[in-house]
């Protein structure tokens, strides 16, 4: 067993373990942290494959972005002592069955697919090539999807701002708030 194998099994093992822990933990922030471990381990596997760019993207977008946002929303909404309610047995059985079916389907597809080496020479996935592919508008270029996604994200951002923007019931600095400080001080 080479070192690469050891590392692979370490990463794979941690992905599996933490995936299970993510869904079984009853404390929501712990789940988020387990998910972080899953995503970081995935990034580790990308690094092993020398696919550095994707690994770094995985870290920035998932670990640094999405997980932070998830944790942020947990921070705003829940308390340390809160625990998730255990689902009724009926739901548990149903979810287990659905998961098993999904896993079976995936494994079956894997087993039935004949993995044959590609005829075309392997393209090295360094930043240079990634960058070129991203902005090229030819057959293999990603310029159009890139732009479309930008617009989509922009739309999502505008939507999020509109949703998040509450009515200004509290005055900004300098003005007095709606709550009358004299009356409320008796509490």
């Amino acid at each position: 067993m080479t070192l690469n194998d050891i590392m692979f099994y370490l990463f794979a093992g941690s992905i599996l373990t933490f995936s299970v822990l993510t869904v079984t933990s009853r404390r929501i922030l712990r789940s988020a942290v387990y998910l972080l471990f899953v995503l970081v381990s995935t990034a580790g596997i990308y690094f092993m494959l020398n696919y550095n760019f994707l690994a770094a993207v995985q870290l920035t977008v998932y670990a640094g972005g999405i997980i932070v946002l998830i944790i942020f929303s947990i921070l705003l909404t829940s308390h340390v002592s809160e625990k998730a309610v255990v689902a009724p047995v009926r739901q548990q059985i149903f979810s287990a069955l659905a998961t098993a079916a999904g896993a079976a389907l995936t494994i079956l597809t894997f087993l039935q697919y004949a993995f044959t080496p590609s005829a075309s020479p392997a393209v090295e996935a360094n930043v240079h090539n990634v960058g070129l592919a991203l902005v090229s508008y030819g057959r293999d270029g990603f310029a159009l999807p890139f732009e479309v996604i930008s617009i989509l994200l922009l739309a999502a951002m505008v939507g999020a701002i509109v949703l998040a923007k509450k009515e200004k019931h509290l005055a900004t600095a300098g003005n007095q708030p709606k709550i009358n400080p004299d009356n409320s001080s008796k509490s």
């Binding site: 509290l170 005055a171 600095a173 007095q176 708030p177 709550i179 001080s185």
Partner: peptide, 12 residues
């Protein structure tokens, strides 16, 4: 203090 600081941030 309440008169002055209500409606501001903690830092204020």
């Amino acid at each position: 203090l309440n008169k002055m600081a209500a409606g501001h941030k903690i830092a204020d």
